[in-house]
């Protein structure tokens, strides 16, 4: 038990932008980069892989199984394994988190494409869309809600999982947890949790907004 207020605002004010590498704003910046990079990389890889899996169904089973296995591995385990390859760098956190993002995004892309109603696809064919254009102009837009649902899960988990990287010194805001633990000091821990949850809520909100902008027809339909 520590006789301490849960939050000491003066500590936050002093450490927000102190210029040192452990300043809260610097950690926040690090956290954002380390969390979004895997999602971005994951999306770039998952789109072609998901398309391939949707096109050649026999690919999907083994891919899904592999992703399932990856997803069941604790983040700390993957960080530890990559530590021996990439050392104490940001890549040690980014690469495993990319795998986690892939595990969510590949099924999302495949399910998204499967969610395109057959009549829609056939109409596109009948209207003279070639496969590539049909994919870009018809199938992917219709798949957006399912893909974005996956993207939301991947983003929020990534933001929260980065903090475990603090155990190998690459945790962004997670470093505040270690700091708070070592000094038996609540404030950094509370600040870290609050900022991470805030970041997750913000990112999630932006993705919901993106979905509304990308699928204007879904609103038109529910309004009618």
């Amino acid at each position: 038990m520590i006789e301490e207020p849960l939050v000491r605002w003066d500590w936050i004010a002093r450490n927000w932008d102190s210029g040192s590498p452990s300043a809260i704003s610097t950690l926040l910046e690090n956290h954002v980069v380390t969390a979004f990079l895997p999602v971005l990389l994951g999306l770039v890889v998952a789109l072609p892989l998901g398309l391939a899996c949707a096109r050649w169904r026999w690919l999907y089973q083994p891919t899904a199984a592999l992703m399932n296995v990856t997803y069941s591995l604790p983040s700390l385990v993957l960080f530890s394994i990559f530590l021996s390859v990439t050392g104490l760098t940001r890549a040690t956190v980014v690469i495993p988190l990319t795998f986690f993002a892939l595990a969510v995004l590949i099924p999302a892309v495949v399910d998204g494409l499967a969610s395109v109603p057959d009549p829609v696809r056939q109409s596109a064919v009948a209207m003279g869309f070639r496969p590539a254009r049909r994919l870009l102009r018809v199938e992917l837009p219709v798949a957006v809600p399912v893909v974005l649902a996956g993207l939301r899960i991947a983003t929020v988990s990534s933001i929260s999982l980065v903090s475990v990287g603090a155990l190998i010194g690459q945790g962004g805001l997670g470093n505040l947890f270690i700091d708070g633990w070592q000094r038996q000091f609540y404030t950094p821990i509370v600040v870290g949790i609050a900022l991470i949850v805030l970041l997750a809520v913000l990112a999630d909100g932006l993705l919901v907004l993106a979905q509304r902008l990308l699928t204007p027809w879904s609103r038109a339909r529910s309004a009618a």
Binding site: A166, V190, I193, I196
Partner: peptide
Amino acid sequence: ANAARALPTLGLLVLVVLLAG
């Protein structure tokens, strides 16, 4: 469900254990 996904495990652990002793 959404809140739980965003909660950082390590932070929660550290905070609860410090609070409880």
